[in-house]
Computed example of a mutant assay.
Amino acid sequence: MPDETPSRSELAEDRTDLAEDRTLLANERTFSGWARTALATIGIGLGFHVLFGALEPAWLPKVIATVFIALGVVIIWMAERRACAIQSRLSAHNIRTLRSLNIRLIAWVYTLGALSLTVALWLVNGDAIS
C-alpha cells in the first residue's frame, strides 16, 4: 500500500498558494477601503457645499467642494493603480478574484459620477433650491 501523505515540498507549495490567495483577497479589501474613502471625500465636498453654500463670494463653496471631489477621484485612481499592480504580480489558486477590468470599471464609474456631480454643482443655481 503506497504512502499517500504529501511531501514537505508539496505542503510548502500548498501553504504558499494559500498565502497568495489570502494576499489577493486582502488586496481587494484594501481597494474597497480606499474606494469608501474616495466616496467619503466626495461626500464631504458635497456636504460642504450644501452647508456653506451661502458663503460669499458665491464661487468659494463651489471651489472648496470641487477640490474635495477631485481629491476623491485622485484617491480612487491611486487605489486602482495599486490594486491592479498587485493583482498582476500574483495568481489565484483556490479563489475567484476581482478582475483588473472590474477594478478599472469601478474607478471609471466613480470618476464619471464625481464629474457629473461637479458639473451639476457649478451649473445648478443655488437660489432655485429651497
Rank of each mutant, 00 (worst) to 15 (best):
R96F: 10
R96K: 15
G45R: 08
L71T: 12
L55V: 02
T41L: 04
Q87M: 04
F68I: 06
G33V: 13
R81G: 15
A40T: 10
G33K: 07
C84H: 01
R81C: 10
V74I: 13
A58L: 02
A107K: 04
L60W: 09
I64V: 15
T97L: 03
T30E: 05
L90S: 06
W77R: 10
T30M: 05
W34S: 09
L39I: 05
L105M: 11
L24V: 05
A107N: 07
P57E: 01
G72W: 02
I76T: 07
K62E: 05
V73Q: 08
V63C: 09
P61E: 07
I103C: 02
C84S: 10
I69V: 15
F31Q: 00
N27E: 07
I95Y: 02
V67R: 02
R81Y: 12
S91Q: 15
L39Q: 06
A58H: 07
A38F: 00
T30A: 04
R81N: 11
R36M: 14
I69K: 02
G45S: 11
I42F: 00
R29F: 02
R82A: 14
F68V: 00
L46S: 14
W59D: 02
I86V: 13
T66S: 15
I64Y: 00
V74W: 09
V74D: 02
V50K: 12
L71H: 01
G33T: 13
I44C: 08
I106Q: 06
